[in-house]
């Protein structure tokens, strides 16, 4: 799993690569928390290169969403593969975390 962040003003894009499961969920959490700053207003996880996410990975996404909510910022995800989209749909996470087709759509929706 690898995270690469690019910041455009108050918008932070984080591209997640590989797979996130119980064995590396805490690394995933550290990576996200390490790169998010208090001045960020919108954080978009670009999951286009994420091949698999388990419920332990979803929990990290939820934790980050809650932290961002405390600083009045938003979290969204974009570019999900079919497998990852299915995980978001089945778990119902797509009801509380906005899912977008592309980074651009995530920006426009915010």
């Amino acid at each position: 799993m690898e995270c690469n962040a690019t910041r455009e003003g108050a918008n932070l894009f984080i591209a997640v690569d590989g797979r996130v499961d119980g064995t590396n969920a805490s690394e995933f959490q550290e990576a996200l928390e390490g790169v998010i700053e208090e001045s960020d207003r919108l954080v978009v996880l670009d999951l286009g290169a994420l091949s698999y996410v388990s419920s332990a990975g979803l929990r990290v996404v939820l934790l980050v969403a809650k932290e961002l909510q405390r600083q009045s910022a938003k979290l969204a995800v974009c570019s999900l593969s079919d497998t990852v989209k299915e995980v978001f749909t089945i778990s119902g996470f797509d009801k509380i975390i906005p899912v977008h087709g592309t980074r651009q759509e995530a920006l426009e929706a915010s």
Binding site: L62, I90, S91, G92, F93, K95
Partner: peptide, 11 residues
């Protein structure tokens, strides 16, 4: 068919 519910404890 799924009943559209979200995982428990989330919200």
């Amino acid at each position: 068919a799924t009943t559209g519910g979200i995982a428990l404890g989330v919200a």
